[in-house]
Computed example of a mutant assay.
Amino acid sequence: MDDRLRYDRATAGLEPPFAILDLAAMRANAADLVRRAAGKPIRVASKSVRSRPLLERILAMDGFQGIMAFTLPEALWLAAHGFTDILVAYPTADRRALAALAGDADAARHITVTVDSAAHLDFVEAAVAAVRSRSEIRTCIEVDAAYLAVGGRFRAGVLRSPVREPEQAVHLAADIAARPGFRLAGLMAYEAQIAGLGDDPPGNAAYARLVRLMQTRSARELVLRRGRVVNAVRQVADLEFVNGGGTGSVERTVREKAITEVAAGSGFFHPRLFDFYRRFTGRPAALFALPVVRRPGPDAVAVLGGGYPASGTPGPNRLPQPYLPAGLRYAPDEGAGEVQTPLLGQAAGDLRIGDRVWFRHAKAGELCERFDELHLVEGDTVVESVPTYRGEGRTFL
């Protein structure tokens, strides 16, 4: 049975729009991540999942350990529901959440916040100054993992931490050690130019070669620099973990001796942007269905809604992919619309009012900001429906 028929049959009792998760596909993707990690634990990036029951399912599988959260309020909420070993991977400026963390001994044992400057430490100190019986704040230093060339004039990677060299990391680590109520628990460095950039982009062979060359040189530079940073900081603090990488770089990152764990999240759902890697092939697991509501022409339909672009630099690759039936494309002068999305192609000729068109989001967890629940499909049956963060009334960003 082909996937379109299987999904249509499984969800025959549901009215679109809705979202599904193919459990067999997710399990296969998870198993592939574990294989690529070669024995090192994988910290689950919650921003790419955004469903508490799904996080529980994933963490129950062998090979996965800990959460990489995206906000401190999210981390506090997860800790209150029994999750442990939570790294908030982005610095916080939420005074109320910091005070709540400092005042909750149980949460403080399980949550680590990321810093990359003395200014962050000053901010945290001010935010928790009035807390009585303050708990120790666990911290993680983020190190810049971007690739610089041509004397720094060329940069590949995201603009995150100003901490790049061993002496900068040691200086910040010593500052943490000198402040009462703080403890340095770990280091992290995310090589977005490798983990989040496909090395096999379609339609431009010359660009693909440049990407691969940059990634090879970046990985070579990073393994040396990250190792030096970790060795230097270990002279100041007894690190519990050193985190790196992401779905697109797992097998590369785990080869570094300095790395104790890798992060992954998008690999579970395998959204559209992760089709363009040579080192691994995932199975699309998370989809959403929209109903056909118009037939404006013989090879044209319009579905309800669909304007769900992904974050990042705007462009066609940030739009959802019309996936099933195959062969549909956007109308070039309309794209994905707020209340309707026209789709063109020969496949549109076979669609009737009320039929479903299945889409893949360009990114992973952002899909869950559009839907209250995910319907879990096993074979041709919905076996369970689980809430997303939104479905539990939680919108952290």
Rank of each mutant, 00 (worst) to 15 (best):
L213R: 13
V223Q: 15
Q168I: 03
H110D: 14
A178D: 13
L14W: 08
N231P: 04
Y147S: 10
P314F: 05
Y207F: 15
G103M: 04
S249K: 08
R36M: 07
T216N: 15
E334L: 14
L172W: 01
R95I: 07
T92D: 03
V303W: 00
G203T: 00
L78P: 03
R179V: 04
A28W: 01
V233Y: 00
R226P: 05
G39W: 07
V303M: 01
S117Q: 04
G103F: 00
Y277C: 12
P322Q: 03
I141D: 06
P291F: 06
V44M: 05
Q346R: 15
T112D: 07
H361Q: 12
H171A: 14
V233N: 12
P41V: 01
R160M: 06
V163A: 06
L224F: 13
K40F: 12
Q168L: 01
A30R: 07
P41D: 06
G248V: 11
L72A: 11
D22A: 12
R164Y: 12
I137F: 01
E369F: 12
G151M: 01
A232S: 03
A69W: 02
D175P: 02
A24R: 09
D238C: 12
R36L: 12
T71H: 10
T395C: 15
I194A: 10
A174K: 13
G66H: 03
G245M: 04
